[in-house]
Nucleic acid binder design. Structure first.
Lengths: 238, 238
DNA sequence: CGCAAGAATGCTGTATGCAGGATGATAGGA
DNA sequence: TCCTATCATCCTGCATACAGCATTCTTGCG
């Protein structure tokens, strides 16, 4: 289960070479071991390689990732703050299981955030931004047409994240992203059945149309309906 | 600045002694060093003892708190995930400064959460729960009458947290609490002037009345107005 | 045969050690 | 005098070491 996980440490990554002005220079993002581990472990949990309720063995996981316990533990604390794992005194970290209640609650919060984002986006977003979201949607529809479920799903998530970003409220977008990532696994397995899938696609189409018309209330209503439907779709996989 | 901070380690704290059934036994909450440190450092930041933009010196702070660097660093990672500090590779932890933009964005998210909580609370909360929130409000008014600003402020925060709890959505309440704690310092210093203070009090009174009438829309509207006013009140202290 | 008490093992929680990079000081040159 | 380059110091990031508590296995007793 934990084979071939070793972390590859990357040095600094100088991008943005040909910038002519210094105003828009993005700081060199050097990937630290901490970030790398946080991302990696988060994926292990979301993708189900670390099962809910299971204890995380620091020694084993550390060895599998090729890292000592110290940075690993630090990454675990970080993830605990995100709510993905629980720290049990004396027994270490346990992967948190989402109860139906948790999922329902999180979807309600997600709805509150997305409808707020929707209203803001209808006011603030530029035509170009809306057009780029439309492109993302069309791309998604392309993957839907050929039933490429994973690729479709990624665009789907990106679409919702993009909508949050278009609100112009970075904090909202970040909060939204945090919740969405925690629900990712459940939503993925919940979109399994073709009928469910089709429903979600139709709702997305409506959302794009409402956004293009900058009809905030209609967009908010569709989003609320979409997330209500999501709840129905995921209910039997929790 | 960092004198007399030493952490006192507490052993297990057996509460809930006289429980007759085992159903409602709450797990013994033993305060771990980790939790203690997280709480302590969070307070140091919120109360302004660790200034924004300033680097956190692991050695110094660890010595001041009477703790080695390891648990301290773990606590810092945890707080970084909450967004209170920023981890700069090679330079350690830096206390994050909230820009006006950040505060504005956070207040908008807070508004989205509280209005949602308000609607849910109007449906779901019991009369007893509403009454207890009323008592909290009255208590707050008492402190207002005698101009006990700190005590008043604590009840104020508790009131908003209580409203979030009454939504019955634990995740919403937790998310709300996280944001509220990050805004605590700014809101406190922002409620300095008597005129501002009086305005906030009046809005609270309206909120309680709307909640008692279970008038969800009116309550949501008051909350939105309250947070808009908060923005005005805090604007010049950022 | 089942249960309980005790010992042994293993894991977590915390401290310490060490290497590499960042920061600051000092000296040399323009 | 100011700027720059080099060096010394300090701090962070990671690894390792050790103590104490959980868990599990075993053994003795009912």
């Amino acid at each position: 289960m934990l084979g071939e996980l070793a972390v590859e440490r990357r040095g600094m990554d100088v991008s943005n070479e040909g910038a002519s002005t210094l105003d828009q220079v993005v700081p060199v993002s050097r990937r630290t071991l901490h970030d790398e581990l946080v991302g990696r472990i988060r994926d292990l949990i979301i993708e189900g390689h670390l099962a809910p309720e299971s204890r995380i063995h620091e020694g084993q996981l550390g060895q599998a990732l090729g890292v000592s316990r110290t940075p690993l533990r630090e990454a675990l604390k970080f993830l605990a703050s995100e709510g993905l794992i629980e720290l049990v005194p004396g027994r270490g970290a346990v992967v948190r299981r989402l109860t139906p209640r948790d999922v329902r609650d999180m979807l309600d919060v997600l709805a509150a955030l997305e409808t707020t984002a929707a209203r803001l986006a209808c006011q603030r977003a530029s035509d170009a931004e809306i057009a780029s979201l439309r492109r993302l949607h069309d791309e998604m529809m392309g993957y839907y047409a050929v039933r490429a479920r994973l690729e479709y799903f990624k665009r789907n998530q990106a679409f919702h994240a993009g909508l949050a970003t278009l609100s112009g409220n970075a904090f909202l977008a970040a909060t939204h992203e945090g919740i969405q990532s925690r629900l990712r696994r459940i939503r993925f397995v919940g979109s399994d059945a073709p009928a469910k899938w089709a429903g979600a696609v139709a709702e997305h189409e409506e959302m794009v149309l409402a956004l293009e018309a900058r009809d905030a209330e209609r967009l908010a209503a569709v989003i609320a309906r979409h997330l209500e439907a999501t709840w129905v779709r995921v209910q039997d996989v929790i």
